[in-house]
Nucleic acid binder design. Structure first.
Lengths: 217, 217
DNA sequence: GCATTCAACGTACTCGGTAGTATGTTTGTC
DNA sequence: GACAAACATACTACCGAGTACGTTGAATGC
């Protein structure tokens, strides 16, 4: 099929291509975080990168596609972190705590992506003409529902285990995630803030959320 | 100074003016909620109103001023509701619960204004040229801090009263308000949803927030 | 070694949309 | 009947998304 050198150059090309796209995504996330998606221009993103629009439009067909990729990358970070922290034979409440802390650390460490991901999706559904873009939006919404489902399922297990009082899982998961996600609104990244300090903040917020469910510490 | 008729026409003019402005604000809140501030055009607002830009620019000098007024009106609703529900000789936790429920009911009943108020303020600080507008933004930020302070102060009183464990008030007030404000993100107004039903939802969320502080029900 | 080719950009442009304005037009009021 | 508030209409000026095309450097083939 392909020689060893072919494969090597191929993977190298792919990695380079991904790296180029990732750099663009990082810049886009920063620009979108500062001004918001609609107000930020492609030239703003290019200015963050220190280049011109040509580079961006060489890798992305439209501004909307760029936004979608930032959004999907942000959610992928969440899903990876929350799924990755699950351990075998863990009690539901312990697992919920770990999931919440993991989510909060991603928010604090990748604030730009997470802020963009929180920016309204539904509002963008209105002005989208291409069916392809509408399809992508539904896909992202599905990812979001799946993510919420991860927490909802764990809350349900905690109820079944009798660790917390019976309650409407579909309703309490909203303020639960709200307490976590609100961090994207007020939190400011500070240089020379250690990971330990961020973890301390994350654990306090996670404990608030766990107690909200009715845990008795 | 002025005759009685003068005063009467003056107040009538003011009331009419306020009513006209309020109608514009209502339409602007809806338009901004759907598309976001930057993406919504003045013509969109006019279309909601069933008129043309002329009417809007007759009452507001710029789009930014319109946004500011929507924002201020939204926060005024919050402040009025939260301050209005305070009763004499109430325990801190009871008062906190009532405040939370009042806030949530305002969110659900005036979703458009509250969604606009949650839309980022800081991002708009960037592109503002007029010093007057920057001044207005600082004013709104001060209002927001004052509002958060109302809840923070009550939480501090609850700590002093020994009703909840000692904790960093400045930190826990964030997830507390986050659990409440997140309602602006997920909640959808449904017709034929009674006030009683909304209150039931509000009380569940408020209870979540109260338990998050460490209350033992 | 040299021409070819193509990816990865930069440059210069078009064109539609939108904030804001300038100017009528109507309606009530004194 | 003058006058002004409360709009509508018609326009301008500009910004920004997207495009067409030029440029460069580096791999490729012979």
């Amino acid at each position: 099929m392909t020689t060893a050198t072919d494969a090597a150059t191929d993977t190298a090309a792919i990695l380079d291509g991904d790296r180029a796209r990732t750099e663009i995504l990082d810049a886009a996330a920063k620009a979108f975080m500062r001004k918001g998606y609609a107000a930020a221009s492609i030239d703003d993103v290019a200015e963050v990168l220190g280049c011109t629009k040509g580079r961006i439009y060489h890798h992305y067909r439209s501004k909307a596609d760029l936004f979608f990729d930032v959004h999907k990358r942000g959610m992928a970070m969440d899903l990876a972190a929350v799924r990755g922290c699950a351990k075998e034979g863990q009690a539901p409440l312990d697992r919920l705590f770990d999931m919440a802390v993991a989510h909060l650390l991603v928010i604090m460490n990748e604030l730009a992506y997470q802020r963009v991901a929180v920016q309204g999706l539904e509002m963008h559904l209105a002005g989208q003409t291409t069916p392809e873009q509408r399809s992508t939006l539904r896909e992202i919404l599905a990812l979001r529902d799946e993510y919420e489902g991860l927490f909802a399922a764990e809350i349900a297990r905690a109820v079944e285990a009798g660790a917390i009082p019976a309650q409407e899982v579909g309703l309490v998961v909203k303020p639960f995630l709200g307490a976590l996600n609100w961090t994207t609104i007020w939190y400011r990244q500070r240089r020379n803030q250690s990971q330990a300090e961020r973890r301390r903040i994350a654990e306090q917020i996670a404990r608030f959320a766990l107690r909200g469910l009715g845990t008795t510490p």
